[in-house]
Write a protein that binds this DNA or RNA. Structure first.
Lengths: 133, 133
DNA sequence: CCGAATCCGCCGGGATACTG
DNA sequence: CAGTATCCCGGCGGATTCGG
């Protein structure tokens, strides 16, 4: 794939495709939920425990969005203590690939980006090389 | 890579890595700017024209963030009509890969997701099976 | 146990006007 | 041409409370 073709893929029709997927997964919890759900069904409280920092409200909202988009399936068991289980759909599982690519990029470049930020903030950033070059 | 390993990559240390990269590229214009800059240096106004809908303010902010993170380089030419050119750094170029993966996923599943949404919104969504199995 | 409802602070981001 | 400064609004997301 040429550089030109790659850029076109991303920019698409004014970037609508990429904007759409980022609107979908760019929020605070979606990718974490998807990753946590990867490979096993799980009930609400279990998700709540496994995802540190998420509130009941946000977990519910995130799951609803994912369900609406057909990425997550929801099963309710009519029991005395209510039980609800969530699982990735086939479509939902396909999201893991791009998500992993993103995660790997993040892990690989995080340190460098951090250093770049410090340099940028530290220097007058109109001149001056990085502080540790 | 096993399912477990993939999930770990994304969830990392409480999902910090993924959260970081989404904070960085999850906003409205960053990926568009990166894609547009892919393969060619470009000046401010050129970017402004090529990215439909972006405002001067947001383009400036986005470029500053990218510069701070070391993903974009900025060159100022001291000429009578001011001229500033932007280009991807080596690190910036590595972002294209994951971005393309995301774009491909978006393009491939957009239609299905759209249908799922309509079905979800249309149905009482308390019953009724999915429209396409 | 699961989730809906309400209240509220914060900030992303658009429009506009001004500068060098 | 290439920004900077200011105003404003919508909604994301946290805390808390109530319902089945």
């Amino acid at each position: 794939m040429s550089k030109y073709e790659k850029a076109c893929l991303i920019r698409g029709d004014g970037g609508r495709a990429v904007r759409g997927v980022l609107d979908r997964i760019g929020d605070k919890w979606t990718l974490l939920v998807v990753a946590t759900l990867h490979g096993e069904r799980m009930r609400f409280t279990e998700l709540l425990r496994r995802i540190p920092g998420v509130s009941q409200r946000m977990l519910t909202l995130t799951l609803r969005h994912l369900e609406r988009d057909g990425l997550v399936g929801r099963t309710v068991y009519a029991e005395v203590p209510p039980r609800v289980e969530y699982e990735l759909t086939a479509t939902g599982r396909t999201l893991i690939g791009p998500a992993v690519a993103l995660a790997e990029w993040a892990i690989e470049h995080n340190a460098g980006i951090e250093r770049s930020r410090e340099a940028y903030d530290g220097a007058g950033r109109g001149e001056a090389g990085p502080p540790q070059g």
